[in-house]
Each structure stands twice: as structure tokens, then as C-alpha cells.
Amino acid sequence: MSITAAVINGIAILALLIAFFKDKEKAIQSLKIAGKSFIKIIPMVFIVIIIIGLLLGFVPPDAISKFVGSQSGLSGVLLIGVAGAIMHVPSIVAFPLSASLLESGASITAVAAFITTLTMIGFVTLPLEIKALGKKMAFLRNGTSFIIAILIAILMGMIL
């Protein structure tokens, strides 16, 4: 187990203990929600795990780096940013996918753009957002999010 995983598990156990100490009923309810969410996300986890295997096994690194690597420039970043905006996958599984992209030659900029647009922009949920907040605010939020996602990505590439 990596240190990160150990710390995360430690925090979860500690939080759970505190929760049980404070309010047993609520803690049990939390565990039920945790179990349900776990079952719900499992198929998605396996889908992404298989895709990662195929990606690392079959797609040659130069192909990936050509599209979203450091040579691909801004067009590669925009391309993967749009992909992230349209894709509707739980963000939790987006991170292993991003790690495998990095491993096989994608640039930090591209991966940061992918994660940021994926989490911030909800193309599929846009109708719901319009219903809740109105057209203007929904379009402004999603549109501006895309621009700042690209800015964050470019800065990430410069810093790291």
C-alpha cells in the first residue's frame, strides 16, 4: 500500500470513529450511503480499468503524445478539453485514466485540461443546470469554465 492510500484510509477510519462516537444512527446511515455508492461505481471502475489496460498495452506512446503530448501544442489541449467537457464519467475514475494517459506520453497540460473540464463542465447535465439557474448563468458558467480550464492547464504545464 502506498503512503497516500495509507493516509486516506487512516483519515476515513478516524472520521468514521468520530462519527460513531457523535451519532451512531447517522454513522450507520453514512455507511449505507457509502456501500450504495460503491456498488454503483463498480461497473464504471472496471470499464475504466479495462480501457487503461488496452490503452497501455495497445496504443503506442508516440500515438498518444502526437495527439495530446507536448508536441501537439494548443490544439491537443483544446481537443482533450472538449473530450473532457462532453464525457460523463464519475471524476473518481477520471484520475486513474489520466494517470495512464500521462504514463503513455500525454503532457501535463493536456491531462490537467482533461480533468478540469471533465469535473467543471457538465454537457450532459446542462439542461438541468439551465432549469435550476437559468440559461444565462448556466451558459456563462460552463463557457467560462472551459476558458479557465485551459488557462489552469497551461499554467500547470509551465509550473510542473
Binding site: 486516506i8 450511503i33 457509502a34
Partner: peptide
């Protein structure tokens, strides 16, 4: 662990 935190 992530799911437990999410539930909490």
C-alpha cells in the same frame, strides 16, 4: 475509504 468519506 473514499466512499466512506463521501457517505459521512
Amino acid at each position: 475509504a473514499v466512499m466512506i468519506l463521501l457517505g459521512l
